[in-house]
Design a binder for these strands. Structure first.
Length: 369
DNA sequence: AAAGGACCCAACCGCTATCTC
DNA sequence: TGAGATAGCGGTTGGGTCCTT
């Protein structure tokens, strides 16, 4: 699908003499030093200013995937693995969206980890890594089972709209954080002398500070100062558990969850136009939820916004990650709205975990499963 | 010990979306 | 309004490392 636009444009790396391939420690030093002092500004012009024989794109990727101070490297925790699997079930290969729920991890890293570890693990367990359904069921899937796919699709659509809104607002608020960003960059000065590994790869600069949350190009979640909103407060939309004390995920006490239009204290949403956009998105999501319930689940929709969790928990999805700290995927069998009790409980587990996932502060998530 | 296959992951490629002039 | 520039995304690749025989 080569666009006509690309025919007009010259590739960013077509300049003769520009280096490709693995970065050397010296190049990293130069890039870090330059960004610490000046910020990255225009990536296009950065390499020349920084004295690098690289294209801007290469510099940007090196920074976002490796040198950024707020990157966590190393082994993925069990919790992170579960997060990735569940979000992948919901969002598919939308790595950047998944990465917003795993602060300090890059989309590239998550993508690699999925392809090299998690995908294979699911396959071994007989789970289709694309549909997250058991292989044999995928083959048999038809009729009533297709309802599951439609349900997932609706969930993804809903999440997609939310993420897009988040991204847009994050861009707006990013401007307001520019000054803050420059300050934070200065804090990273000590990374200039970060240690190296013996090979071409070297260790992480370090863990980022809390206020570096604003800096991450891939992790654009921002939080309001005083509103304990859960789901992307920057969009103005939040899922607000009515009982925040439900920390142990006791399913008998699953909070009724409310989707509210939250008057965010962020600068971005103080803008009238943006608020109007929020309202529009809220309307859209509300209608989608109603459509979702009526079309896919045959469940009552009255007061549905006050009980979205219940809606999710009584849907017809047929898989579950159950039990505390388990990797196992437990396959449900019965599916009906408000039907088999055990199956209902299984789905409660599954969706409760997802809701808790997006409901948790990125950095201090308690054990969720 | 050596060969070669499997694995891993940083980096690249191609594309679209968005911004700027 | 349209062209060009830039940023960001997801898929893919290539080479280094690890493991098995």
């Amino acid at each position: 699908m080569g666009s006509a636009r690309n025919l007009r444009r010259s590739p960013c790396c077509d300049k003769v003499g520009l280096k490709k391939g693995p970065w050397t420690p010296e190049e990293d030093q130069k890039l870090l030093a330059f960004i610490e002092e000046h910020g990255h500004g225009s990536w296009r012009s950065l390499p020349e200013k920084a004295g690098l024989q690289r294209c801007g794109k290469s510099c940007r990727l090196r920074w976002t995937n490796y040198l950024r101070p707020d990157i966590k490297r190393g082994k993925f925790t069990l919790q992170e693995e579960q997060t990735i699997i569940q979000l992948h079930a919901l969002l598919g290969n939308r790595w950047s969206a998944i990465a917003t729920h795993l602060p300090k991890r890059t989309d590239n890293e998550i993508k690699n980890y999925w392809n090299t570890h998690l995908k294979k693990r699911l396959v071994k367990m007989g789970i289709d890594p694309v549909t997250h359904k058991p292989k044999n069921e995928t083959l048999l899937s038809s009729g009533g089972q297709s309802k599951n796919a439609a349900t997932l699709s609706h969930m993804a659509q809903w999440e997609s709209a939310r993420l897009e809104a988040e991204a847009r607002l994050a861009r707006e608020s990013k401007l307001l954080h520019l000054q803050h960003y420059q300050k934070s960059l200065n804090k990273t000065a000590h990374y200039a002398a970060f240690p190296h590994k013996s090979s071409s790869n070297w260790t992480k600069p370090n863990e980022g500070s809390a206020d570096q949350q604003h800096e991450s190009p891939t992790s654009t979640v921002t939080f309001t100062d005083n509103v304990p909103t859960a789901l992307m407060p920057s969009t103005g939309l939040g899922i607000l558990p009515e009982n925040k004390n439900n920390e142990d995920n006791d399913l008998s006490g699953i909070p009724a969850t409310t989707i509210e239009f939250v008057g965010s204290s962020s600068a971005a949403s103080s803008d009238t136009g943006l608020i109007k956009e929020h309202e529009h998105e809220h309307d859209w999501i509300t209608s989608t939820i109603h459509e979702f319930a009526t079309a896919q689940m045959n469940c009552p929709t009255e007061g549905i916004e006050e009980g979205f969790t219940s809606l999710l928990l009584s849907n017809t999805l047929d898989r579950n990650f159950s039990g505390a700290g388990k990797n196992d995927v437990v396959i449900g069998n019965e599916s009906s709205c408000g039907g088999d009790y055990n199956y209902h409980e299984d789905n409660k587990n599954y969706w409760n975990s997802i809701l808790n996932l997006v409901d948790s502060s990125p950095s201090d998530s308690p054990p969720m499963f």
